[in-house]
Structure formats: C-alpha cells, structure tokens
C-alpha cells in the first residue's frame, strides 16, 4: 500500500515528538509516532461484485465487531455501517446480485453540504466522517444522503467489556456511519471489512489510495470497467464497483 509515503510524511513529526516525549535512551520504534491526514492521498474502495456471494456476511460481521456496532433487534432502527444488498432486475431474468453497500465517501458529499454545524466533514484524504462531539442530531444529513449510509442512534448503548477500545461506542441522539475504519487506515491497516473479505470471504473488496498510481486499486480503476452507485447524481463516490 502506501506505507512508504506515510512513513516519510510521519517521520518529521515523529522525530520531533519522540525527542520531546520519550525518556532519554529510549529509541523510536518502527511505526511512525505521529500521522496526519494528507491531501496527497485519496482513499477509495473497489468491490468486485462477481466475487461477492449472497450467503457471505464476512464484511458486515467484521464491521460490527471492529466498530462495536450493535443490533437492537429492531430492524427499522438498527445501525448499519455496511449492509449486503440484493439486486434483482425487474423482469427477474438475470440471477440476483449481492453486494455490500456502505458510505461512498463522495467527493461532493451532500451530507457535508447540509450539515449546519460542520459535524459531517470530509478529511483531506477524502474520508467523510461525522464528528460525534459536534453533531446536534438534526438528521438533515440522513435526508440528504442518497445511499442511506447513515443511522441515528435511537437507544442508549453502554460501554461493554468486550468492546474494541480503539473505537468509541456511541452516544444516543447523534448520527453515525462508516468511517472507512479511519483508526485502522491511520495506522497503516486495511478497513476491517476488506481484511475480513480477503481472509474469510472471496477477496471481493480492495482498499487503497487512488492518488498513488502504483497502488492496485488505482491500476484496476484505471484499466477495468468500474462503476459507482448513482453516478448520475454527480457526487463522485469513492466506492467503486466492478461487474455491476
């Protein structure tokens, strides 16, 4: 992936921070101590629909575990960061497709445009996030998102001993959605769904930096026929699909 660039970018800050922070004699470890989202990157996802099977829920399961996303047992109010959608042509002539749909991390995200407090925002590297400290729960973003990527937290969720400490659980009354596993990406890891898909599933999901011409995703998006959902809306989504 783009570990090299990230290491280089982080090194300056890391050396500075390391010099101040670490006790004398302690050496800087391999991973950069400080990283920052940079416009040099443009994170994106590519989903090969041909390799996605209907029965497999590796990506959605991994997301729930990684991000502590609960199921309330109330389908109308459950939180979904990523979901499997069955797509069938209206005449039913072709076999149905099954594919994951998640936040598309658009280049022109309507949720960000409508948010009155700038709680929804787009990071320099293209990841669209909700600043849950700032969300007032007006839900206008949920009206504006054409992908139904967002959920309001309808119920109190308490911190659980089994929760992944790297991802905060949720305060009720705020809106949330897929983060591209930003905590993992900043650590140089893949999003949990992609990792699970490659490990347990069929390797249908690919994540990477579109701005890096050497990355696999950039090469595949450049050379293969890929599509985005509702490209007609002009939002420039960054979840690409192959074989739709």
């Amino acid at each position: 992936m783009t570990m090299d660039r990230r290491t280089v970018l982080g090194l300056g800050g890391a050396v500075a921070a390391g010099a101040i922070l670490l006790a004398p004699g302690v050496r800087l470890i391999a991973a950069p101590n400080k990283t920052e989202a940079s416009g040099a990157q443009r994170w994106a996802m590519l989903i090969d629909v041909n390799h996605c099977t209907a029965a497999c829920t590796a990506c959605t399961d991994a997301c729930r575990t990684e991000n502590n996303v609960p199921l309330f047992g109330d389908p109308k109010r459950d939180i979904h960061w990523i979901r499997k959608v069955e797509v069938q042509d209206e005449e039913g002539r072709r076999p149905p497709l099954s594919l994951p749909v998640l936040c598309n991390h658009c280049e022109h995200p309507p949720c960000v445009h409508v948010c009155p407090t700038e709680a929804s925002f787009i990071r320099k590297d293209g990841i669209v996030l909700v600043d849950k400290h700032r969300c007032i729960g007006c839900r206008y973003c949920m009206i504006a998102c054409p992908y139904k990527a967002r959920s309001l937290v309808y119920f109190q969720v308490d911190v659980d001993k089994a929760s992944n400490p790297r991802v905060p659980v949720r305060g009720k009354g705020v809106v949330e959605k897929c983060t591209f596993c930003v905590h993992r990406v900043d650590d140089g890891q893949q999003p949990a769904c992609v990792e699970a898909c490659q490990a347990a599933g069929e390797g249908a999901m690919l994540f990477g930096d579109l701005n890096d011409p050497q990355s696999e995703i950039a090469q595949r998006v450049r050379t293969l026929k890929t599509e985005t959902i509702r490209a007609d809306l002009g939002l420039k989504p960054h979840v690409h699909y192959q074989g739709l």
């Binding site: 445009h113 409508v114 948010c115 407090t117 700038e118 007032i136 729960g137």
Partner: peptide
C-alpha cells in the same frame, strides 16, 4: 434535536452551505 443541549454549536460552527 437528538442533542438539543448542543444547540449553541450552531452558533459557533456555521456551515454556510447548509440550508439549515
């Protein structure tokens, strides 16, 4: 609002692209 106690945030952080 889901979080009415944060209402003042609309005064502190304004997004002038938003109809709201």
């Amino acid at each position: 609002l889901g979080r009415p106690e944060r209402l003042l945030l609309t005064m502190i952080h304004m997004n002038f692209g938003s109809m709201f």
